[in-house]
Amino acid sequence: MNDAMLSVAGLQAWYGAAQILHDVSFNVGRGEVVALMGRNGAGKTTTMKALMGLVSRRGALRFNGADIAGLRPFEIARLGLGFTPEDRRIFSELTVLENLDIGRQPPRQFADGAAAPVWTPERLFALFPNLGEMPNRPGGRMSGGEQQMLTVARTLMGNPLLVLLDEPSEGVAPLIVEQMANTIIELKKEGLSILLSEQNIHFARLVSDRVYVLEKGEIHWQGTMAELAGNLEVQRAYLTV
């Protein structure tokens, strides 16, 4: 695919001596929302960490026209790949505004020269009104749902071209999950690409265009969200009850 924002081929990754990913290949197009689905331990989080250079990995990784296979995490982030981890990793001693400042990066452009959306705290507070009500609250004194919003907002401060969203629905109340879904749709409208890792098919269905199903560190199924929704066999084998 020529217009792929992110293309991954033959990705392998390790935690210490244990190999978690064996052969993972996929791509995410510009403005596309792609879901990586699969049970716990299938390798979704590891895939995201491998893309960011946070675990040892091997394979062909291209992002926005650049080879990122040999780069360190901060270099990858500076190319416009944003990462929101599953466990949020908010800086609890820092306030909301300070957390946002840590994520701040200069505006950037797509490979074709088009400008990527530029985010400011004001814009983000419009997107997440809850955060706007508590700009000076330390991260450690926020609820899980508020932290979930802050971690996404913090990543957006880097004006990313593509965001890796690791399990945004995990451990938060249904109401917050709904807000996260609305946010993703909003970001897609802005032209961002999103790679989503998810176990909740109801949530993934609301936001994703395409799906890759991971199992034991390999891609076992791929297709559009609509196809997956109609394919109870795959759902039963890898996802649901």
Binding site: R39, N40, E170, Q199, L239, V241
Partner: peptide, 13 residues
């Protein structure tokens, strides 16, 4: 305390 947190739907069940 959240006995099924961090588990896939089938494992949860």
């Amino acid at each position: 305390d959240e006995p099924t947190a961090g588990m896939a739907p089938r494992e949860r069940n």
